[in-house]
Amino acid sequence: MRKTVGMGKSPADAGDDNPNSGSAGGPQPDIPSAAVARLATYLHVLRSMSETGAMVVSSGQLAAAAGVNSAILRKDLSHVGSGGVRGVGYDVSRLVARIALALGVEHNHNVVLAGAGHLGKALINRVGFDRRGIKIVAMVEADPELVGTSIAAAEGELEVRGLADIRAICAEHRVEIAVLATSDDNAQITCDSFVAAGVQQILNFTCVAPRVPEHVYVRPVDFALELQVMAFNATRRHSAQAQVVQRASAPGGRTQSKQRSVGV
């Protein structure tokens, strides 16, 4: 059963014209998952704008920067009580605070990354987690040959620790999220260790679908699957374009096509 992150409902803002719209409280489960993903994108864009000194942004500017249309953006922001002003736009710092609160990332969430192989090293070296409310506090590994070694991370070196340390690490740092980037053979045992330590949110980069209790949410990240979707889209669009060309070259040159393209 999929879980989404959200917050309580607030009055919808009809564009940039509702300065009194607002919402209270922390994350609550009534923002659609697709909107949650887009809100995370808006938050990243807004923080980048803030770093360049921007104080106000229009819905059109934010929508263009995030790669969505303005109508979708306004609907998404209605979930957080955007506080925009018609003809002026949104206060960047205020909107950052509202979205961060809605997503539950107004403070850092501590994360443990499992897997000290090539993928784990690539993930640990990614810069900018802290700007998105994420702090990787530890790295663990099932392979005894890697336990005790040090991994260079974006924010400094981390010592690779064993699976037996997971419970202590999670208790010390109040870890809420774990990342599985282990070998497929070690995915289930590593996942079991996180579950036993009380972690209920797991991001899974392995090809294994680990068995977990009903209250634990595992989100898979499958590169091959995403590439298959992209390949389908490319084939479908090529087919649609070919049909348009074929109709255009037919007698009369009529191009009345109802073909729809599929996008991601």
Results as ranks from 00 to 15, higher is better:
240 A>N: 10
165 D>C: 01
116 A>G: 08
57 V>Y: 02
149 T>R: 15
83 G>W: 01
213 P>I: 07
83 G>C: 06
22 G>L: 05
4 T>I: 13
88 V>R: 13
199 V>P: 00
188 Q>A: 01
111 V>K: 00
114 A>E: 04
192 D>H: 11
61 Q>W: 04
166 I>D: 01
120 G>S: 12
45 V>T: 11
4 T>C: 13
75 K>D: 12
188 Q>L: 05
223 F>K: 12
256 Q>T: 15
169 I>M: 05
13 D>I: 09
7 M>W: 06
254 R>D: 07
56 V>S: 04
31 I>R: 03
51 E>S: 14
43 L>Y: 05
258 K>Y: 13
188 Q>F: 03
114 A>M: 03
95 L>D: 07
262 V>M: 11
15 G>Y: 04
242 A>D: 08
64 A>G: 12
171 A>T: 10
143 D>M: 04
233 N>P: 05
228 Q>S: 15
15 G>Q: 00
56 V>M: 12
8 G>S: 12
163 L>H: 02
75 K>G: 08
154 A>C: 09
216 V>C: 02
131 R>I: 06
29 P>E: 10
205 F>Y: 15
208 V>Q: 01
203 L>H: 05
160 V>H: 07
196 A>W: 04
18 N>K: 13
40 A>C: 12
188 Q>R: 02
239 S>A: 15
259 Q>K: 11
86 R>N: 11
162 G>M: 02
224 A>M: 10
211 R>W: 04
150 S>Q: 12
132 R>P: 07
95 L>K: 02
165 D>F: 03
226 E>N: 14
183 S>Y: 02
14 A>D: 13
106 E>Y: 07
72 I>K: 13
160 V>C: 05
20 N>W: 11
189 I>Q: 10
100 A>P: 01
71 A>H: 10
207 C>Q: 15
219 R>F: 10
46 L>C: 05
49 M>G: 07
39 L>F: 03
235 T>D: 08
165 D>Y: 00
144 P>G: 09
64 A>M: 10
54 A>V: 10
263 G>P: 08
177 I>S: 04
159 E>K: 14
213 P>Y: 09
32 P>K: 07
240 A>F: 00
190 T>R: 00
95 L>E: 08
110 N>A: 07
163 L>S: 01
241 Q>E: 13
158 L>I: 08
59 S>R: 07
184 D>Q: 07
9 K>Q: 10
21 S>K: 03
9 K>A: 14
219 R>W: 13
183 S>F: 00
188 Q>D: 04
169 I>S: 02
258 K>W: 12
143 D>V: 05
157 E>C: 12
250 A>Y: 10
264 V>A: 15
